[in-house]
């Protein structure tokens, strides 16, 4: 029973890692750089979700519009994703596009700076006080044969998986997705054939940021305490998941995100929780020693095209 309970716990935690890791992986796939501001984009997404949902709830309470809670939840997710995608595109435009062609270390430094900017910007705007994310889902607990599940967890895990499926279909089935894949294959030659590099780069950042925003809203629902620095920790963990899944692999990032959740939860169950991070990340280090390019990533030689 404890096993299944922890399985449910891990699915929820893994959803966040997977959603955030996808953003890292897609950007790497297309532009071969890691967007180190991505964790902070996740934080911004959570704050935008907080603003949207608080605003909608205030409107509903004033009686200005009749909004059932499920609609507020849906609108919050959609609006947060939509607005945050612009934040992501702005990050690309300001932080990375001017540095295209510059040494890769420059882009990494630029990303870190943008991350710090986003943290301090939110800090300046909202103050150091922690924010309480409104309860968009009235918590109901179900017990299935000794395993306790809340409706929150079900919604979070299911919607996360739906979003990942949607991304997969987008990348595999649409023309834009095909352009992204082509760009990932070779971003020097493909633009010469008329595929707009800047548009594809912005699209990639926008999509990744939208998923991070969804993760931010779900995070607020599951752990309703927001602070401007929460993105650092989750950003780094999701980065680990992106590496583990294989740089540039969408499927890999999603699976590795869930796997990271499982490893963290199950290590804390089996071993003393004091050693959790030590053991969990030693396991990941071991996996990467055996498979340096992750589960679905291609070996370096095939990827270093320049």
């Amino acid at each position: 029973m404890i096993f299944f309970q922890n399985l449910v716990n891990a699915l929820q935690l893994g959803s966040f890692y997977a959603l955030i890791a996808l953003g890292y992986s897609m950007v790497y796939g297309v532009l071969m750089l890691f967007n180190f501001a991505h964790g902070d984009v996740f934080m911004v997404g959570a704050y935008i979700g907080f603003l949207v949902s608080t605003g909608l709830l205030t409107l509903a309470n004033l009686g200005a519009v009749a909004l059932p809670t499920w609609l507020i939840l849906a609108l919050t997710i959609i609006l947060a994703m939509f607005l945050t995608s612009f934040v992501g595109m702005l990050v690309e435009r300001v932080g990375y596009r001017p540095l295209r062609g510059a040494p890769r270390a420059s882009a990494a430094i630029s990303g870190l700076m943008i991350g710090i900017f986003l943290e301090t910007f939110v800090l300046w705007l909202g103050g150091p006080k922690r924010r309480s994310f409104p309860a968009l889902i009235e918590s109901t607990t179900y017990e299935l044969g000794g395993v306790i599940v809340t409706n929150k967890k079900i919604v979070i895990v299911l919607v996360s998986m739906l979003l990942m499926l949607a991304l997969h279909l987008f990348v595999r089935r649409t023309k834009w997705g095909m352009a992204m894949r082509a760009m990932a294959y070779d971003y020097v030659v493909v633009p010469l054939m008329g595929v707009p590099l800047n548009t594809i780069a912005a699209l990639t950042f926008g999509l990744g940021s939208a998923l991070a925003a969804a993760a931010g809203v779900f995070f607020g629902i599951a752990y309703p305490v927001l602070d401007p620095y929460m993105g650092i920790r989750y950003g780094w963990k999701a980065f680990v998941a992106a590496i583990l899944g294989g740089r540039g692999s969408v499927l890999g990032a999603a699976l590795a995100g869930f796997m990271l959740g499982f490893i963290e939860i199950f290590v804390a169950w089996i071993f003393p929780s004091t050693w959790r991070d030590l053991i969990a990340y030693s396991i990941i280090l071991l996996i990467l020693t055996l498979r340096p390019h992750g589960f679905f990533g291609e070996p370096y030689s095939a990827q270093l095209r320049l």
């Binding site: 922890n6 716990n9 929820q12 752990y223 620095y229 959790r276």
Partner: peptide
């Protein structure tokens, strides 16, 4: 747990 953690589900399950 460690400072900054938000998920305590595993510890609480234990």
């Amino acid at each position: 747990f460690t400072t900054g953690d938000a998920d305590f589900s595993s510890q609480l399950t234990n």
